[in-house]
Computed example of a mutant assay.
Amino acid sequence: MPCCRQLEDDPQREAKLREEFHAGNPAALIVAARIEFAEGKEDRWFALMHAAFSKGSGQAAFELADNFEKSNPQDALSLYADAIERGHLGARYKIVNLLRAHPPERLGIRSDQHSASLAKYIPLADELVKREIFDVLVTGSHPVQFLEELGIPWGTGTFFLVRWKDKEFAVTARHCISASKADPNHARLIVPDRQGPVPFLGHFTPAGEEKHIDDERDIFMWEVGGHTEEKDSGWWSWRMDHLWKPASELRAGQKIFIVGYPSIEERVDYEGRKLDPHCLVIRGDLADGSLAGLLAVDCAEFEVTVDGVSGGPVFAMFDGIYFFVGMAVRGIAEARRVYFIDATHVIAAMDQAVAQLAVLASHP
């Protein structure tokens, strides 16, 4: 609720809160209710929250439902439904979880009502999940592309932008470069609302000049220059210093999200001389079995090829927040599996690149 957030952050919060409270502003009532709750005055919290609910607040309906979920799931179900009708998006998740957690009799509804409610709310929750995944995870991932002499882009694979120790890198799998028989100096990064490509300042791979490498060193990165803070520049880099976890923290069966650009025929716009984005977000479960040095993800049947997903970032959610946990290096469509390397290998490679850049900077 923007109004509620503005009240909490405003330096004149107390005066404005009193003014809005006396005017019956639902956001102000909610802020006041939270203050009362923090002081242990639960009866006063309920009265104020109910007043905000009575004025049509979806946030109040959500917070009341969340409070009653364990003690009175029947009332929680009704309140979550009210919150959804009033436009509260988070209630979509909560009502589905509530319906799955309790039998119909515990929720005070018939079996057919229980089934009908799940059929109604699951698609709403799935729609929101897909929207959040694309908003959060896809921005910052790009197809690997090189520019040939005729100006027509080509290449295969995926790279993603990360920020690490005050440096920014575009990271991919090294085999995306070698398989294309490409010169990494010809790689291009195109972002919306920017004239011309973002410059690459140099490149690095932990495998050096070796031709045959193991999966854990199948990493290639460019140092990215030309960073801009403009609001709508189309630029975004994953903050690795805050948002990564080692794959050792994953558990079998955990939901995994893999972002990539499949190599489909429609990906090249020859007239516009550009690669059209056809991004794929693969959702699956972390598998028990894996190949040496790799982690496996069991996925649903793929609608398109997974060729080109190599080099794509891999994410998992912890306590409602997405964390980078690895990089895809191969996929087998027939087996419905994608394999990825642990994020720790990517971190180690970036540390090596930062150290190398520091040495170069000290010897101009």
Rank of each mutant, 00 (worst) to 15 (best):
L280Q: 04
V129D: 08
V191D: 08
Q195I: 12
W244F: 10
L64E: 01
V346P: 04
W236N: 11
V136E: 11
L89K: 14
G293H: 08
G272C: 08
A125I: 02
V325F: 04
D298K: 15
E230H: 14
W244E: 06
G293S: 09
E265A: 12
A32M: 09
A125V: 00
E69N: 05
N67I: 01
A316K: 07
Q254N: 11
V171Y: 01
I30T: 11
Q6W: 13
Y93T: 12
V191W: 11
P192L: 12
D183Y: 00
G253D: 10
P123Y: 03
P143N: 07
G108K: 09
M350V: 02
S115E: 14
F257T: 03
I84Q: 01
P246Y: 06
A52S: 13
P73I: 12
Y339E: 12
I341D: 01
A60W: 04
V268I: 15
R44T: 12
Y270A: 09
H102M: 06
S141A: 15
N97S: 10
E36H: 14
A81K: 10
R18C: 09
Q145A: 13
A60G: 08
S248I: 12
L201I: 03
G58S: 14
L98C: 09
F21W: 13
M327L: 12
S248E: 13
E85F: 09
M221T: 00
P364V: 04
Y121P: 03
A52F: 04
E266I: 11
E36Q: 15
E149Y: 08
A51Y: 04
P103C: 06
G308M: 06
R267M: 14
G331L: 03
H175F: 04
W238L: 09
G90W: 05
G320C: 11
H345K: 12
P364C: 07
A51D: 06
R336F: 01
E249I: 04
F340I: 02
D193P: 02
P103I: 09
E249C: 06
V359Q: 13
L89R: 13
